[in-house]
Design a protein around this nucleic acid. Sequence first.
DNA 1: CTCCTTTTTTAAGTGCGCTTAAAATACTAA
DNA 2: TTAGTATTTTAAGCGCACTTAAAAAAGGAG
Lengths: 230, 230
Amino acid sequence: MDLNKSKEDYLKHMFLLLEKQSDPIKTTILSDRLQVSPAAVTDQLQKLASSGYINYFKYKGVLLTDKGSKVGKNMVRRHRILELFLQQILSVSWDAVHQEAERLEHAVSDTVIDQMEIKLGYPKFDPHGDPIPSIDGTIPNHDQGVLLAHATSGRSYTVVRVLSDGADFLNYLNELKLFINQKLEVRDYHEFDRSVEVSIQKRKVMLSQYTALQIVVSPTKFQIKKGANK
Amino acid sequence: MDLNKSKEDYLKHMFLLLEKQSDPIKTTILSDRLQVSPAAVTDQLQKLASSGYINYFKYKGVLLTDKGSKVGKNMVRRHRILELFLQQILSVSWDAVHQEAERLEHAVSDTVIDQMEIKLGYPKFDPHGDPIPSIDGTIPNHDQGVLLAHATSGRSYTVVRVLSDGADFLNYLNELKLFINQKLEVRDYHEFDRSVEVSIQKRKVMLSQYTALQIVVSPTKFQIKKGANK
DNA sequence: CTCCTTTTTTAAGTGCGCTTAAAATACTAA
DNA sequence: TTAGTATTTTAAGCGCACTTAAAAAAGGAG
């Protein structure tokens, strides 16, 4: 059986759910996630089972086979690379990035995704800080992070995660080029208002305490000279 | 009625056909182009007519309304920008570019297309030399072109168009670096087999009559020193 | 103009993913 | 254990884009 948009979505959501639980996934959960009726879910599960993507236990739930997991993981990979590419290369606004990727992930080929990954410099995390599965299937771990509000002045960091998901806030960060994987230096910390002064690409930026509490950064281990590995 | 992949394709093909003819388009032509049965075409034409995208004359053929023409032209715009973006930014091979764009054109939003256009520097022509409709609907004209087979020995030309779209042939051209915007000089023309000898980047290449008839070139008006306007 | 061929449309039916409603099964609380 | 509730599956049916086969219309040669 050939996979299409709908079945790819089923496998993607199952994969995401099974990252957080090992019990079989119930019909209702998928029905909620995919915004279709439980009957539609049962229908697709039976088809996916008959072509070996899932192990389906009637009335009990469903687990992915290796074959299905591979597809699901690849959909997650596509989605996250697309999100990053849309954000960083094509300047798509934060609030539009997700739904845009949601449509493209079913139309884009693996070779194009691989090219995007190269263009992005083999990133480990998407704009939300979620890990991007590599082509061989490994999923990167988060580096140990610190809130930017608690970072040390004078040190170099990389943004590894943004906690808030409000569209306005994220667009604000986007304007500052304060997105995931971005390198920055903490210049100063003002005790009186708990604001943080950082420099991003030689640009000095003042961040409120609120902002600094939403951004998780990781110390940059090795200082690499600019343009060292073009 | 909402447009989907299928209807977008119908309108795109109608737009392309109506660039070359003003008579109503016959059912059979669309049936051939879209690789579906004539009955399927009639079916869709009736739906497109009832929502105002086309003027449908039973048994006679079909013309686009302004509304339909706008959609068709926009699909062409999407397709051609995608082809160029895939080729130039994402290094997709020439033979893969078309089918890749064919799928993406239905999934990508206009805002992303506009961003790609900016990234590409508002290009006028796609990798095949076909004009890219601008956002306001204007379609750039070709510089006056000549078939390479009819070009004058000793003169300098720029490739402005490739007529064939066979994958093998385009890959062959790719190996020769004989793609759009490429500059070349016509060295010699052999009457006995109508082959053409050209030099591309100081490399001498022999082209068969067949090849020379597929390539449209435009005389290079001003000789610009290499690296003059990086 | 008429016959005959080609083209186009209509009619009937298919596969897919969905829906709602009814039947089957699982879960829970006494 | 059982009764009642919640969940899941089955059944029937829908819309969509397609198919094939039959009917209708158009077009060309004599």
